[in-house]
Structure formats: C-alpha cells, structure tokens
Design a protein around this nucleic acid. Sequence first.
DNA 1: TCAAAAATAATCAAAAACGATCAAATACGA
DNA 2: TCGTATTTGATCGTTTTTGATTATTTTTGA
Lengths: 251, 251
Amino acid sequence: MNFQMRKQIILQTLEQKDSADVKELAGLLHTSEITVRRDLALLAEKGLLVRTHGGAVRPGLAKDPVSFINKAAVNQAQKEYICQLALREINEGDTIFMDCGSTTFLLCPLIRHLSIRVVTNSLPVVNALLDCDVTINMAGGEIDSKRQAAHGLMAVEHIHRYKADLALLGVDGISLANGLSANSETEAEMTVAMAANARRAILLCDSSKLEKDKYFRFAPLSQFDSILTDQKITPALLALYRQAGVNIYNV
Amino acid sequence: MNFQMRKQIILQTLEQKDSADVKELAGLLHTSEITVRRDLALLAEKGLLVRTHGGAVRPGLAKDPVSFINKAAVNQAQKEYICQLALREINEGDTIFMDCGSTTFLLCPLIRHLSIRVVTNSLPVVNALLDCDVTINMAGGEIDSKRQAAHGLMAVEHIHRYKADLALLGVDGISLANGLSANSETEAEMTVAMAANARRAILLCDSSKLEKDKYFRFAPLSQFDSILTDQKITPALLALYRQAGVNIYNV
DNA sequence: TCAAAAATAATCAAAAACGATCAAATACGA
DNA sequence: TCGTATTTGATCGTTTTTGATTATTTTTGA
C-alpha cells in the first residue's frame, strides 16, 4: 500500500462521509496513525482536505458557515408550509427569480436536487444553493449588508437581462386596498423588476402579512399571478380576496 | 521475455488493479526487481504510468482532483505577508477591484475598518466584508460553485461599468517568458477585465507561483504595474525580474 | 479557569526501495 | 567462431518511507 493508493482511499472516504478520523483511517488502510497523519498533512497542503484535531474533513465542509441574519425563524412553520406550496409550482428546467426574502431562503433546501436555474439577488440563497444541481445566477450590484443582498441600479439592470418562467417573491405587506408595500424602496424595485420579467409571478406571503400596509406602496395586486399563504388565514379573509379576483391559495 | 512483452503485462496489470508493486511484478514476469524498476522508469517517462515507492499506479489515479475551496490554507504565511504589502497600496476613499483568489480573501480582515469601496466577483470576499466600513459591490453573473465566484459575460460586463483606483489580483502562474497563466479561462477573463478598468493593477503572487506556467496563457506582464511577493523568493530570481523591467517587491 | 486526556510534532532508528556501478549472460552480425 | 552491443542481474551506498518514543500542544470536561 503506497501513498497514492492511500490518498485515493482517504479522499474517497471523505467524499462519502464528509469526515474521517485518524484512528479510523489507520484501520482502514492497515497502517499506523503516524503515517495517516503524514498523509493528511500532505493532502491538506494541496487543499484536498482540511485537517481537524483527530482527523480531516472535506474542504467544502470547512468553509465558514456564513452567519446570515435569520429572520427565517419568525413564523417558520407557516413559511415552511408556504414553501411546500411553492415547490409544486416549479418544474424541472425552469428558470426562476427568487428575491431576498426569508421564505425564499427556506425554499432552498427543497430545490437543491432540481435541475433548474435560479436568478437571485440574495447572498443567503446563493450560499444555500452552492454545490448542487441548481445553476445559480446572482444579480450584481451594491450589497446591502443588512439584507445581505444586491440592490440598486445594477442589480435591477441585471434582472432585466433575463427572462424567467417563474418569480417567487416575498413581500412585507399586502392589502386589498393598497396592493403591495415594503419597508424599503430598493427592495420594492427588485420585486417589480423580477415580476416584470417572469412569465408567472407568485407572492409568498404568510398570513400575518395580509392586510398590513408598510411604509412604501409600490405595486397593485393585479401585477401578480397568485399569492401563496398558510392555513392561519381566516376563511372570511380568504373569501374576501377571492371575491376581489385574487388567486390566493393556502392548500 | 523481452521488454515489449513485459510492458504489455505491466500496463494490463495496472489497468486491472490500478496499482502494482515491484515485487509482485517481478514474480509475475519471472524476472528480477531491478529489471522491473528499469521497465517502470521507462514507462513512467512516457507517461504510461506513475511511479510510487515500491511500485506504480495508473496515471489517472495520481492526478489530484482539483479543489478550489480553501486554497487559502496553502502557503498561508506567505500570503498573509503579501497582504501586508498590499495594504500599504490602499488609500482611504479608494475604489478597489478584488478578484476571487485566496490571497485577496486573506486581505479582507485587514481592510474592514477602511472607508473604501470594493468591487469583487468573489462570494467569500463579500461575506468577509459584510457589516463593516467597506462599501461592497458584487459583480453578478453565473456562480461557479467550485470557485465560489461569479464568472462569465455578465460578470465581465459588470466590471466594465466601473472604474477603480486599484486592482488587486491573484494569479495562478507567472513567468518572465510567458507572462500570466491561469487554470481556467473564465478566471483569466476576470483578471484582464479588472486590470483594464483600474488605474493601477497589482499582482499578488506568492513565490511558489513565480516561473510556473499554467495551462492557459492570457496576458503579458507589461499590463500590470507591479508584483507583490514574499520573502521566499531567491535574490537571483528577484534580480532577474528587475532586470527585465518588472516592478517586483517583497519588502 | 485549571487539569486530564487526546492528538500532534519532533526526533530517531529500522526497513524497504532506489540508483549507480560493474559483471555476467544473451543476442547479433561478420 | 569471434567480437561487439544489448540486456539482465548483483552488490553497495544512498534515499525514502515507515514506525516507535517522547515532549508539546490542543481539546475537553469539570
């Protein structure tokens, strides 16, 4: 058993299990722990793995988990429910716009295995979709540190260069009277741009945001194809929206 | 049993088992170990196999699976030294291009307190500069999962929309004879675009990459203002570069 | 925070493999 | 058959790899 062979087995093991410890590898390779350590040091030097105390992990695993602000925790159950509804709207091969909402972020784990193309301005979404079957396209521009997303002229221009089958959009507030409203103009701009360049634009909106107006009104409901919400919405409100001609779904 | 016959058997054995040792082959070929070694040396010279201590492996097996993530760990001390040199080139108020190299990534912690604007195509750089005094602008486009960076037409176009005071660029290989070379065309494209749109373009290049040619040659040294490297460079090499008119610094 | 346990790095020694050199065997042509 | 060239094998000093030992560092749990 020479170094090349051990290297194969070590890298293969890491590929399968993400990590391995020195004892385990020594047994697997029928060699001593010191030899394993030496091998790991060599492979780490080439960046083929990352050493840990007692073993090694795949390089991808060691990259610092980016600490994204997790608004997702608020109303998470409802948001995850909405994600399930959104998932049914996605077809293999689609190109999809996803904005920087917390709901779209929660959708990411559910679409990693799909052969689709995602165009987004959200850093957390990009991060959640790295190394999977999804082709990612990020809109460039000035980065808003708070929202961890690209906004502004360049970002909007970027979106206008693409045509998507579907836009999945979060929104801060919706009301029948005033349509969509947001806490920030730049975010609203992005929502409008994505909706304008997608064949279908769907709003992901948990029931707590319905009939809430935020400070900046920016679009009528008629510009969107449908709203996906959760089961906490009252039947009366649901009926009211439908009566107004809005396609709103919670099942 | 002549050399041609042995060659057949050796290559066939490697094809079947991926590797073989000298003892084993000597038995198989009914010959001495020294003869096997001589055969292996000849075959290795032609690239038909790769020698190891005690035997040989198939050429494919010895190749390192390319992994771009966490190259930062390789030669980290030298790279951090280069970052110190680069830091001196940056002035408050500057707009700076930074590409997706591991050296530029290591520079991030050192510039978080500066009031500058950074335009980059690298996700790790963006992440490392979130929530600090730096204004970040990310180039949009298709995301290369391996390199964790935006590349391609849109990304290059994005860069061309901006003008920077300084471009800090990593590079895979530099040689006096062939100039800059890279492992990937898309990365080279970005390097060229950034250099073209910056008042000063500086190469960050640890000494291990000097006089190394990678597979894609893409730019002459004359397009760059200077090279920053580390102290492991030999004085002879340093003199050689300076004699050729290259501004190269390691202090 | 400290102390025990685990893992590591450093040093050294042994074993295996290697390269160089030379001698023997073999093949080949005149 | 002889002489030469090529291939093969043997020997020996050198290098590489491996494993053992011990001191140091890192981790972990109180």
